[in-house]
Design a protein around this nucleic acid. Structure first.
Lengths: 181, 181
DNA sequence: ACAGTCGGTTCGTTGATTGAACCCTTGGAG
DNA sequence: CTCCAAGGGTTCAATCAACGAACCGACTGT
């Protein structure tokens, strides 16, 4: 969050969670990671976030064990930022918060549809598959962006790469998306 | 969150939700509202938040339709800040985030136990009652603070008022708690 | 008349966010 | 060999929010 990035007096799990994931931009970074974004530059162009802030947030999320750096090339060594198991467990808070925002903080209805990959059923507001009757982990979720009525969609390479039905957590390929324009 | 309280480029429900509930302190205020805190001064002493920030957050949460002011006395007129229906629907995001924090951002295990009032069963990590097999709304949740092993608990009147099993959303009575010391 | 409560506002200080500019390593083109 | 571009950062001044202590204003009970 903002000034004073912690809540020292609060002996409370929520305060601890917010110290990790509650700063400005952190949740959006994690959401993008669920979408399959993994590279510094892809986060940068898709979020319109200042470079210095992105550097700082990625570092603290790695330190907190939400993301981990995995090298994708040598010389110079470059890293993907991928969700850890702990990070993937943030799916429910993030999904339910996004669905809440869709219901109460937007005009213009649903922008992204989330469904259970195995059976095609749309998830309910709690992240449950009505057909299977259980909470669906992000690995089994397919997302699909829906044409927004209000704002025109973003046109950066990352935004183009995540149109169309996609499995969550599959790495995006910005080069392929750039060629397809 | 922090500076620049919005995410203008993000046409995304999560960004909209974070503009409403993602600023620093906002989620903790909402959590306290679930605990039954309703008065300016009670939020103040329980959260250790600067007065000016609390004023500002309460105003924006009211403007966003998460809280509403309901008068509890005349001359001078004084207001309770109570969760609206939209605010109460933030239960799942807040509960799941708190449970995540308990698992991944704390040493020292569970601090608050949440159970289904009707059947006494503890809720699982997704807010579901294992016995009843459904998501439990906050009106049916009973909370109980557990003695922390690491930090000594807070000693303000609000903290004292919420020890012991309590139904969520029932207004706290700080006067009664103050006398009981 | 006087202290006390509740809910705010004001204000100087501290510190995070922003955005633009600069930097470093390496690979590839000419 | 030189030059340039890409990826991933760092630096820096300006801005703006958070902090916390002091002040304020309406009322009440004594």
């Amino acid at each position: 969050m903002a000034l004073g990035t912690d809540y020292p007096q609060q002996d409370c799990s929520l305060a601890r969670a917010l110290e990790v994931a509650g700063e400005r931009w952190s949740m959006l970074i994690i959401r993008d990671a669920f979408y399959g974004v993994r590279r510094f530059n892809d986060f940068l162009v898709h979020l319109d976030i200042p470079r210095a802030v992105l550097t700082s947030r990625l570092q603290s999320l790695v330190a907190a064990g939400v993301l981990e750096k995995v090298p994708y090339q040598q010389s110079p060594v470059r890293y993907d930022y991928a969700l850890t198991e702990a990070g993937r467990e943030l799916w429910l808070p993030i999904y339910t918060l996004a669905r809440w925002g869709e219901r109460h903080a937007r005009a213009g209805g649903q922008l992204t549809r989330y469904s259970h990959t195995d059976c095609g059923e749309q998830l309910d507001h709690s992240g449950c598959c009505p057909r299977c009757g259980r909470i669906v982990p992000p690995e089994e979720v397919t997302m699909q962006r829906i044409a927004g009525t209000t704002v025109k969609p973003r046109q950066d390479p990352v935004a183009r790469a995540i149109v169309g039905p996609r499995r969550l957590l599959t790495p995006i390929d910005t080069e392929a998306a750039a060629e397809k324009v």
